[in-house]
Write a protein that binds this DNA or RNA. Sequence first.
DNA 1: AATGAATGAGATTTCATTCAT
DNA 2: TATGAATGAAATCTCATTCAT
Lengths: 192, 192, 192, 192
Amino acid sequence: MPRRKIDDAQARLLAAGLSLFAQQGTERVNTNAIARRARLGVGTFYTYFPDKYALLREIELRTLAGIRAARVAAVAQAGSQPEQQVRRSIAAVVAFASQHPEAYRVSFGRERAGAAHRGPVVSESSRPTAEALRRLQVEGRLAQDLDVELAARAYLSMEVGTLLWWLDDPKRATPESLVETLARLHPATPRS
Amino acid sequence: MPRRKIDDAQARLLAAGLSLFAQQGTERVNTNAIARRARLGVGTFYTYFPDKYALLREIELRTLAGIRAARVAAVAQAGSQPEQQVRRSIAAVVAFASQHPEAYRVSFGRERAGAAHRGPVVSESSRPTAEALRRLQVEGRLAQDLDVELAARAYLSMEVGTLLWWLDDPKRATPESLVETLARLHPATPRS
Amino acid sequence: MPRRKIDDAQARLLAAGLSLFAQQGTERVNTNAIARRARLGVGTFYTYFPDKYALLREIELRTLAGIRAARVAAVAQAGSQPEQQVRRSIAAVVAFASQHPEAYRVSFGRERAGAAHRGPVVSESSRPTAEALRRLQVEGRLAQDLDVELAARAYLSMEVGTLLWWLDDPKRATPESLVETLARLHPATPRS
Amino acid sequence: MPRRKIDDAQARLLAAGLSLFAQQGTERVNTNAIARRARLGVGTFYTYFPDKYALLREIELRTLAGIRAARVAAVAQAGSQPEQQVRRSIAAVVAFASQHPEAYRVSFGRERAGAAHRGPVVSESSRPTAEALRRLQVEGRLAQDLDVELAARAYLSMEVGTLLWWLDDPKRATPESLVETLARLHPATPRS
DNA sequence: AATGAATGAGATTTCATTCAT
DNA sequence: TATGAATGAAATCTCATTCAT
């Protein structure tokens, strides 16, 4: 009997799942296919995940964590200027999506929820963005009557939607123009 | 066997499908359930639609047409001022989503296209928005270097994403604040 | 409402059934398709035939009657010589199959029986052949110990099987060579 | 869940299919019934065969192989005399049909291939018979102008048709009379 | 007599999950 | 732990037949 490190088997299942979900869509993929792709027995799948959607959720959580880390690092590198922070943060997400297109699409894509996919739908928290906007408001650099919660949520929707559209066909735009456009439309960015 | 007015059966199936899709999600609903809800025989479903996704597509197309019509009417009522047009157009869509929450969610929701849903995923064309932006650019009322195609697509993502989030729990915001926020973030809206 | 002569409707259904059965096979064809092809309402089918297999049976019976008539005419034209009669009879059947390939294939072909096809399977009676052989036996022109019933049945199997094989691809042989071969192998034909 | 010897399940399915096909006909039998008869789950059928017709085809191929082997053995046992070979070969097939009536009927019977049965319809190759006839022709023991291909095909049709007719009711003839009659009508057999 | 919308029994097929090895 | 043959609930789709018009 094959003896691999536990993490090896789990990692193989995650990779297999990610690859198949991205290629064929969440619903068209079944657990047997994931196990086969991972070169594991069909029963082994259930040693690591209770079902297909648990694996999907794990992929989503890891993707979210990756994006969060990328944002934090980018903001840390940026100076204290809000505009600089916004731009760096956006650039970090665009880079992430570019480097992990499968993970991004599987985690945020339309072809995503599933028959029995119950748990809370994964989405980036709008908290950090909302708080950053509030800080600007306090400093008087942003219209006082803007609903920052709503604006933060709206901005994130835009970011996700635009990146998914871009990943559908990366020739649609350069990463630079994406960053530029998203930055300009960001609530914190002043316009002429 | 029951004889009803022609097209009655189709209308019943559309209504039943919309209702069930909205309640349970595209994948959890099967054709038998739709037919039963419509008080029709299981085979009758297939007299009107080749499969579940054809019905879904029809719902989507009707929703799209409804939104388009609402936008056109709103813009026609607005004067020639671009800002007024933008705001009216947004208000029209918010009203549509508010009045047809099931149709909006089923047509645009993350609760996704699904397994065999092949046809082109429905999404509003970003054309009209892009052209409106371009006109403003020509008139010098919008930054010359903005990528209007990209901005239009980004704006629509924002609008859809925000409305879906709102419909998940309409207490999250008033329709007025939604319109206000979306209008402010619209690419055509100048900021202080 | 269309008013046609009764026989017209029945004839149309028979023609439509023959054509569809030959093209697609007995099982792949359904009553709705037959009615549609006959340009009649789906319900009209049941005015003339209780089900698909009744129509099939009617086709078979007509085919058998046609073959019988052709044989009788051929034998009548032949003189009193048995060999001449055999050859003419065979030629008549080959001509029939050649002129009505659909009817022959539908009536005798392998792709024939059906789910609920109950009635007696259609096959040419071996009676006339057996009696002709018996007459030859009495006259001392055929081996006394030949089982004429069996021989007659065997010959008919050969004729039908060979003609079906031929109709599958008529380039396989000329009608003349078919007649020649079948005649030579006929029990009544002397060899060497 | 039950664990049986590998291939046991396949063998059970083949036996169940043969039995049911022979009893009720190819079309009246469904995969569920086959699985049930084999005392296996409905899904197990699809582990071994893609559909009903794959199982049927397997039965046909095995039948064909069995007949071929029986013929080869019989001819090997016979001496070098052609007539002896012909008679032994026929006797072998009659014995096979007698011992495996279900397999013979299912494989060759009018109770036809059916709806979706696509693969090449099974039939014995007429090659060996044709070549044997040609050899006799070369040796001058058979009329030079006989079309041996056609004669071989005709003979096989006769054999199959006669055996099927016999199996419909074995009281119709003794195996010996069948062999005798088929042998006499065989193209290679001289007549008085 | 003719129609065709409606019907629902029944067949096919998939796949998450189990469990003896 | 790992395995994969076996399972059966459930979904899709077909089509012979009915019957109000």
